[in-house]
């Protein structure tokens, strides 16, 4: 579904991502881990389109992504949850999630401005989708609250709902657990497992190694911009290069 080939990106002569190749299959929950500065965020920015690659290609569902601007990638079915993509201030929770459904809207600006009947139907449809997405992340009761009044854990869930409202084929989660408290992490982890169980293809980039080990079907380990291991959690855990490169204690702790 998502296939990355020999992708490179450098900043001022230093490679942040170097010759990275990755394949994510339909229905897979792919974890990507690595120490600070391993290139995880750069990789995510390359997939979302906020950074252009120096070399290499990204294929998604048969389309080449590199030349497609970010907002059109969303329309292809890629949804992203990451720290930088905060909620829209001054809007309610439900409105935030409705905006997330932009990628599936059809009618143009003109129809929207004139509130033509087709557009009204579409707006109704979007509202229903947003309500369903909120129910899926368990926030139905919060729909009419101002989005920025929610605690961080809930805001993260709203971001997930916002991503889901666009009916994505691929969900990219960039450090979704960062800044969350333990209980919030557990809830989020359950939510991700549930979405994966429903057949969603997910890429999870996370600092929390234990969380990725628990959830992912396959894990790629990045170090200094390169993939040093790629396999099932068990394979990665026992990989000597991974242990040497950075994990060591953390992996064995996640194991126990």
């Amino acid at each position: 579904m998502l296939s990355i080939t020999a992708l490179s990106r450098s900043y001022g002569g230093v490679f942040a991502v170097r010759d990275v190749s990755l394949v994510v299959g339909q229905g897979e929950l792919r974890g990507i881990i690595g120490p600070n500065g391993a290139g995880k965020s750069t990789l995510m920015n390359l997939i979302s389109g906020q950074t252009q690659p120096l070399r290499g290609s990204i294929h998604f569902d048969g389309a080449r992504l590199e030349r497609i601007p970010t907002h059109r990638r969303a329309r292809l079915g890629i949804a992203i949850v990451f720290q930088g993509a905060r909620l829209f201030r001054g809007m309610t929770v439900l409105e935030n999630v409705m905006v997330g459904a932009t990628s599936i809207t059809q009618s143009g600006a003109f129809a929207a401005a004139l509130r033509l009947p087709a557009q009204r139907r579409e707006e109704h449809h979007i509202r229903e989708r947003a309500v369903a997405a909120l129910a899926r992340v368990g926030l139905s009761d919060w729909a009419d609250r101002p989005a920025d009044s929610l605690p961080l854990g809930q805001q993260r869930r709203v971001q997930v709902a916002r991503a889901l409202a666009g009916a994505p084929k691929l969900l990219l989660l960039d450090e979704p657990a960062s800044g969350l408290r333990a209980a919030e992490r557990r809830d989020l982890s359950d939510l991700i497992a549930q979405l994966h169980g429903e057949g969603m293809t997910i890429v999870l980039i996370e600092h929390d190694v234990a969380m990725v080990m628990k959830l992912a079907t396959r894990i790629a380990v990045l170090d200094l911009g390169q993939v040093i291991a790629d396999g099932t959690p068990e394979e990665v855990r026992s990989n000597q290069r991974v242990i040497d490169a950075y994990l060591g204690t953390e992996v064995s702790r996640a194991h126990s």
Partner: peptide
């Protein structure tokens, strides 16, 4: 209106707005 919301969204957080299309 939905379009108005989209414009407000683009104004408040261009990055996130692009990511939702």
């Amino acid at each position: 209106t939905y379009l108005g919301k989209g414009m407000t969204a683009a104004a408040s957080n261009p990055r996130a707005a692009a990511l939702v299309g």
